[in-house]
Computed example of a mutant assay.
Amino acid sequence: MSEKESPYQLFTREILSMWTSQDVSYIKVEELSNIDGTTFYELIPDSELLDGGGHDTLYPIDSEDVDDMLLPNKKIKFVVHSVYLEEDE
């Protein structure tokens, strides 16, 4: 592949654990793109403002919905931008 390395990575239990330890309360889910029949959603920690477009939603970090985002799905992928993966110093 000649594409640049993506700044996104799949949402994992490790990311969830890190955000929990950083006292993240909510996760915003925003539709990012649709590629070859797979819809990608970006997860944004502690984003409390909704854009009003109707395609983004807030979930409490300890909700079953967030746990479901960790389950493999061929048609839906939840991704996190690298800027949200930096550990608090």
Rank of each mutant, 00 (worst) to 15 (best):
M1K: 14
E5A: 03
D51H: 14
S17N: 09
E14T: 11
I61M: 10
V83E: 10
E86R: 08
E87G: 01
L32F: 11
I76H: 14
L85M: 15
G52I: 01
F40C: 02
K75Y: 15
M69N: 06
D56I: 04
G52L: 07
I15W: 02
G37Y: 13
D46T: 03
Y84W: 15
S63P: 01
L10H: 12
I27H: 03
V24K: 06
D68I: 11
D23H: 07
F40P: 02
Y41V: 12
Y84C: 07
G53Q: 09
S2C: 13
L49V: 10
K77L: 05
M18N: 10
K75D: 15
E64F: 05
E87M: 09
Y59S: 00
F78D: 01
T12D: 02
D51P: 00
P60A: 13
I15Y: 06
I35M: 03
D65R: 02
H81M: 06
G54K: 08
L58T: 03
D65F: 08
K77D: 14
I76E: 11
S2M: 11
K28W: 13
I27P: 00
D23K: 07
Y59F: 14
K4V: 05
S82Q: 12
M69I: 03
G52K: 03
E31S: 12
F11G: 02
D56C: 05
V79L: 00
E14P: 01
V66N: 02
F78A: 05
V79P: 00
M69K: 02
T12G: 01
V66H: 00
I61D: 00
T39A: 09
Y41S: 13
L70K: 11
T57R: 13
E89I: 04
G52H: 04
D46A: 04
S47E: 11
P7D: 15
M69D: 06
G37S: 14
D67F: 06
D46W: 00
L32A: 13
D23N: 08
I35H: 02
I15D: 07
I61H: 01
L32T: 06
D68R: 10
V29D: 12
K75R: 15
V29L: 07
E5V: 01
H55F: 13
G54T: 08
